[in-house]
Each structure stands twice: as structure tokens, then as C-alpha cells.
Design a protein around this nucleic acid. Structure first.
Length: 487
DNA sequence: ACTTCGACCTGCGAGC
DNA sequence: TGCTCGCAGGTCGAAG
């Protein structure tokens, strides 16, 4: 069954159930499973007390008295459970530890892949090959940015098998690799040494956070099975790509694809996770929010730090300026009435026309949409060429306009519903009814928050909002761009 | 020293 | 129904 969060769940459950239990005798039904050979294994364990249970990567370490450690790996399907002695042995029970309180600790494993090694405490890191070269645990203290940068720069292989290799990082398996790559928008076949620093940082944050969340959710339960040590995992309910082939991506709605990478089933979003020849160093942060949530306030903070901001509304105006292809198409489609005497677009006339007719609005969007996209891509290409580290794409309808897939990360500016309503009424001098109409015309703010990587809470003071932006800049590795260090 | 690929096992569901 | 095939949360060792 397990990756790190599941093994940790087992460790905690077993600690509760059999911590301090004493073993009277051991039965081994599948001898290949244990080392040293079965008779010796049984003899060594008889009379021993389980003093504690540790974990390293996906290995369980049972610590007994007299400096004895049993290293146990569950591989694909190994499970421990505790039951009263005398219960009939099932087909797939391979090792039974009889306890002195009339209970059994049983190990079952349909595929017989699991292994148990008994050795002197301390020898496990010298004698068990998997433990010998185990990489750091995915925690903030042990998995450092410096370490990641260093190992990433040295490997040309695809990132997916690289992350599955326990000697690089401990504990990740097929599920959490797919999940964290999706969270970080990295294609599973992207060569590891081509991944830019900002993505290494994102990946690190996502790995650490995802593993932590999964442990808190008691791990992921794939095949339906419930554990005898208390809880069945519930983290499968939080999976973003694993097992979701054909279902819409939670960020951009594109169907999730399933392929094979390094002989393992691999799930990813073809639009969010694009294989890049030269990924470049530029990170694009999508900035969005709801009407009157204060997105422009946040946008101004970035501008104040000289961080380039591409304003989607401004681009939308540029593509219909006099002399543009966009304006010409609007004239052809909607008539000369849409053009004012001075040659500029009559926004009021166009607005009135499309406001009441959804099909006209769709027609307008099909003209301007591609032009905006092209203009944004052109601007981004310029920043990429100049190796600008961070660019903000400020777009009120980022999700609605299907712009999410092109972003490296998405920041949503959020306020409580009531605050949004009050601010909109005050700002635009609207009645409650009018304000609600405008709010309800957009994708619900809660839905945007759900799709966000970072949420900025703008319900308090400007200073508090700014502090959140500054914190994000620091955590994302852009601390050097902050010019007013006093904050 | 690198990466790739079969082997280790059993059960289950899809497709014929 | 019965058969074959492919697939499953992992790792190791042989072969290229």
C-alpha cells in the first residue's frame, strides 16, 4: 500500500496498539519474507519487547530491547493488523507475532513483496541497502533548497523517476510524485537539470506541504481496505490528478491524461504541465480576484518593486486601438456604428449591444480573446528573453478566460462576501441589488480561492495585505526584489 | 557511473 | 463462462 504518509500512519497506529507489547513467539509462513532465516528470526524475537517504532522513508523500524531492530518494508501491499489470538490465519498472512496479552500482531501481504530484516540497532543504515542511501526526509529542516538545487543540477533524467528514487528524497511514491508535479506545473518527463530554480522551490514547498497534509489525513487509501489499527486514510479525496484520467483538471478544466513514464502509470494535465525545451528563468504569477476584492492594490505593490505587471484589461484595450486588426474585425462583424467619428471604438455602443445578447458577447470574445492571448505571449517572450525573474499577469477573469494553464502560480485576492459587497457598493455607488448582480455574474470567489496556489486576504489594513505579498515574495525566492526592506 | 528493464507475486477488471 | 492481458501505492539486481 504505502508511501511515506501511509507508512507514518501505520507507525502511529502500531505505536498506539503494540508499543510496549512483549512478543512470546513468532510464526513465519513465508520464509523468504524474513532475514536472518526463519528459525533464527523467531528465536531472536522470542521474549523481546517492542520499545518503540520509528520510520525512515517508507521503512518501519521496530526497536526492541537488547539493541535489536526489525526493519520492515511493506512494498506494495503489506499490512499490519492486531487481533485476538486464535483467530484463523488467512491466506495472505505470512508472519504472526504472538503477544503476551493474547493478541497477535499479524503481517499480511497479497503479493508477498514485503520484507523484514532483523539486526543489531544501528546496523540497519549499514546493511539494508535501501536505508544505506536514503535521501532526506521531506521536511522543511531536512529537505533544503540548497540540497535540491545541487542534486537537480546533476541529473539529466526525467523528473518523475528522479523523484521516485529514494536516494534523492525519502518517501515519495507514484501517487505523491504525480500530485506534487501537478501542483508545481512540471511535466513528468521534464529533464531534472532543466528545471529552473523557481520551480525547484515550488516543488520543494509542494512536496513538504503535500506530505504533511497527507499524514494529517491518515494517508491515501487506494484499494478499499480498512486498517485494523484505527483509521482508514481519507486523503484520496484530496487527489488532484492520480486516478483522475479523463476528468477535468481542477485548475484549467482540461481532461487529465494518463501515460507511462519509466514504466509507471503517470497522471498529468497536458495544459498545465508542458514539456519545455528551454524552460528559462522567468516565473509568471497569475494575479486575479473578484470584483472589488482589491486586486489592483496588490498589483500596485508589485509595481512599486519594479516587478513587471502585464495588465490584461490594458492589453484588451490595446488590441482594439485604431488601426488594429481587432478593431477592423469588430467593425466587419458588428457594423460601422461601433466606431466613433475619431476612429476609436465606441465602447458604450458595443457594451450595450453585447450586454443583452450572450451570443454577441461570445462573438466579441472570439475576436478579442485570441488577440489578447497573442499579445500577452509576445510580452512574456520579451521578459523571458531578458531573463526577468518574475512577471505578474494581472487578469480579473484569469480562470474564465482560460488563462490559468499558462501561469506558473496563481494568486487570488480574497475578502469575505460581505466585505466585497460593501466595497463594491461604495466604490461604484451601486444599490445592493446592482452590486450583487455584478458579483454573481462572475465565477464565485470561493471557486477561485479553491483554484489558487496563494490566497491574499485583503479584508484588513493595507499594511497587512502588503505584508502577505512581501512574505510570498520571500518564500518564493524573490526576496532580493523587495526594495523597501523596512517592511 | 549512468539508465532501463525484467523479476518478484497475486488478484481484479476489461475485452474477446 | 472462461480465457488472456494489463495493471496495481515498490525496490533490486542484471544488463545495456
Amino acid at each position: 500500500m504505502p508511501e511515506l504518509p501511509e507508512v507514518e500512519t501505520v507507525r502511529r497506529g502500531l505505536t498506539r496498539l503494540v508499543g510496549n507489547a512483549k512478543i512470546t513467539s513468532v510464526d513465519v509462513y513465508y520464509e523468504k519474507m524474513v532475514s536472518p532465516e526463519a528459525d533464527q528470526f523467531k528465536k531472536m524475537l522470542a521474549g523481546k519487547t517492542i520499545e518503540r517504532i520509528d520510520r525512515r522513508g517508507k521503512y518501519l523500524l521496530f526497536r526492541f530491547n537488547d539493541d535489536l531492530t526489525m526493519v520492515s518494508h511493506l512494498r506494495m501491499e503489506g499490512k499490519y493488523d492486531v487481533q485476538p489470538d486464535g483467530n484463523p490465519i488467512t491466506k495472505h498472512t505470512h508472519v504472526v507475532f504472538h503477544l503476551d496479552d493474547h493478541r497477535d500482531l499479524r503481517y499480511t501481504d497479497t503479493r508477498k513483496f514485503g520484507r523484514m530484516h532483523l539486526l543489531k540497532t544501528g546496523d540497519e543504515t549499514k546493511l539494508v541497502s535501501g536505508l544505506k542511501k536514503m535521501g532526506p526526509e521531506p521536511t522543511p529542516e531536512t529537505l533544503t533548497v540548497e540540497y535540491m538545487k545541487q542534486i537537480f543540477s546533476k541529473s539529466k533524467k526525467a523528473i518523475k523517476p528522479f523523484l521516485l528514487d529514494q536516494s534523492n528524497i525519502a518517501g515519495l511514491g507514484n501517487i505523491y510524485v504525480d500530485e506534487t508535479l501537478w501542483l508545481s506545473r512540471i511535466h513528468p518527463e521534464q529533464p531534472t537539470n532543466t528545471i529552473p530554480e523557481f520551480q525547484i522551490r515550488q516543488l520543494r514547498e509542494n512536496i513538504i506541504a503535500e506530505i504533511k497534509r497527507a499524514i494529517e489525513g491518515h494517508g491515501t487509501t487506494v484499494h478499499s481496505f480498512s486498517t485494523a489499527y484505527g483509521e482508514a486514510g481519507e486523503f484520496q479525496n484530496h487527489l488532484m490528478v492520480y486516478g483522475r484520467k479523463g476528468e477535468p483538471c481542477f485548475r484549467c478544466d482540461t481532461p487529465i491524461e494518463k501515460t507511462k513514464v519509466a514504466q509507471r502509470g503517470t497522471h498529468f494535465c497536458p495544459d498545465c504541465q508542458v514539456l519545455r525545451k528551454d524552460p528559462g528563468v522567468t516565473m509568471v504569477l497569475g494575479l486575479t480576484g473578484g470584483i472589488a476584492t482589491g486586486k489592483s492594490t496588490v498589483s500596485e505593490f508589485f509595481k512599486a518593486y519594479q516587478i513587471p505587471v502585464i495588465d490584461a484589461d490594458k492589453v484588451a484595450r490595446e488590441v482594439v486601438e485604431p488601426g488594429t486588426k481587432g478593431l477592423k474585425e469588430i467593425q466587419t462583424t458588428f457594423g460601422w456604428q461601433m466606431i466613433q467619428p475619431d476612429g476609436t471604438l465606441d465602447r458604450h455602443a458595443l457594451g450595450t449591444l453585447v450586454f443583452s445578447q450572450p451570443e454577441k458577447l461570445a462573438q466579441l470574445n472570439s475576436i478579442t480573446g485570441p488577440l489578447i492571448k497573442k499579445a500577452v505571449v509576445r510580452k512574456l517572450r520579451g521578459y523571458r528573453r531578458r531573463q526577468v525573474p518574475l512577471v505578474i499577469y494581472d487578469a480579473p477573469t484569469l480562470f474564465e478566460a482560460h488563462g490559468a494553464a499558462g501561469m506558473n502560480e496563481i494568486m487570488v485576492v480574497n475578502v469575505p462576501d460581505q466585505v466585497q459587497l460593501q466595497r463594491l457598493m461604495a466604490r461604484d455607488h451601486l444599490s445592493k441589488k446592482e452590486a450583487l448582480e455584478r458579483i454573481n455574474a462572475q465565477m464565485p470567489l470561493a471557486e477561485k480561492v479553491k483554484r489558487a496556489d496563494v490566497v491574499i486576504d485583503n479584508s484588513d489594513s493595507v499594511d497587512k495585505t502588503k505584508a502577505q505579498v512581501v512574505r510570498w515574495l520571500n518564500e518564493a525566492g524573490f526576496g532580493s526584489l523587495i526594495t523597501d526592506k523596512s517592511n
